[in-house]
Amino acid sequence: MPELPEVEIVRQSLNKKIKQKKVKKVIVRNRNLRFKIPLNFSSYFENKKIIKVERFSKYLILYLSKSIYCLIHLGMSGTIHIIENKMNNIITNTSFYNSPTLPKKHNHVEIIFEKFKVVYNDPRRFGFFQIIKNKKNLKERFNHLGPEPFDLNFDLNYVYNYFKYKNRDIKNLLLDQKFISGVGNIYASEILFKSKIHPYRKVCFLSKEECKKIILNSKKILLKAISKGGSSIRDFKNTSGSKGGFQNEFKVYQQQGMKCKNFRCTDLIKKKISSNRSTFFCESCQK
């Protein structure tokens, strides 16, 4: 599943391409995504401008004219492709997952502009589109989610008090979107390694200094991942022709059996499976 940095790269690609462009037509080929696409879905788009593309957590937000918003969540396997008219599109994918070019199957939604179209592809159909009809409802839509790592509210007071009475592993809690929005399995492992905190430590025993490290390194790791274009787990590129480079910066994720990259540490990176998720860590460096 794409995490915050990868969704941000999709947002940047889309915003650059569709901002201030008018939609000519929308074709829905399959309404049966995670939430069924409404029958009148196309009426919210046709002959309206895309004002801009924003993001919250792992959600893309299309700002349409007349204060209408469309949320897009990519789910497990969703990708967004940009297809130029009358051009040989070598690479169409705006993200770094699945096919770099438009697959022949599972193209569920097409948003058609004058010189190009945007296609949503999703083999597993866990993604969704949702129309939000005003700004108040848009804000309420995210009430169940915690702050992003970049939010000013993600501070020591919030983190320490959230941890104080909880008997949960820190890795597990970093993946809890009610606590912090946008962090997934890749970046949780990297954040904890940089913070020198063992993934199975109980959060109620973390000190204020350790909480500060988690806050700081959450920001650092995600900002670096965005600057590197996200993490290309497979060797694919985005529509600008560049691929994500943060996978070259991994210290622990998918590094099991490799020597720890911390100076003077000779231990090997370990991998453990819990709740169907892989956790990577160095037992010597992370306490």
Results as ranks from 00 to 15, higher is better:
E3D: 09
I9P: 03
R11S: 01
I18C: 06
K19S: 15
K21P: 01
F35T: 10
F41R: 00
K48I: 00
K49H: 11
I51G: 13
V53G: 06
E54A: 11
Y59P: 01
S65D: 14
S65Q: 15
I68F: 10
I72Y: 06
H73Q: 08
M76S: 08
S77W: 01
I82E: 09
I82D: 11
K86A: 15
K86E: 15
N88A: 03
T94W: 03
T94G: 06
T94V: 00
S99H: 10
P100Y: 04
N107D: 07
N107I: 01
V109I: 11
F116N: 10
F116Y: 13
F116T: 05
G127D: 07
G127S: 08
G127T: 05
G127K: 02
G127E: 07
Q130W: 02
I131S: 09
R141E: 11
H144V: 12
G146D: 09
P149H: 07
N153K: 14
Y165P: 02
K171H: 12
K171M: 12
F179D: 09
I180K: 05
I180R: 03
S181D: 06
V183K: 05
N185V: 00
A188V: 01
L192V: 06
L192N: 10
S195G: 08
K196E: 07
K196D: 08
I197G: 10
P199H: 04
R201M: 09
F205A: 09
K208D: 12
C211F: 05
I215D: 11
K220F: 12
L223R: 11
L223G: 07
K224G: 05
A225W: 04
I226T: 07
G229A: 04
S231E: 06
I233Q: 12
I233L: 14
D235W: 00
N238M: 00
S240Y: 13
S240L: 12
G244C: 00
G244D: 04
Q247H: 15
E249F: 08
Q256A: 15
K261I: 05
N262T: 14
D267T: 11
L268E: 10
I269W: 05
K271E: 13
K272M: 10
S278N: 14
S278H: 10
T279Q: 04
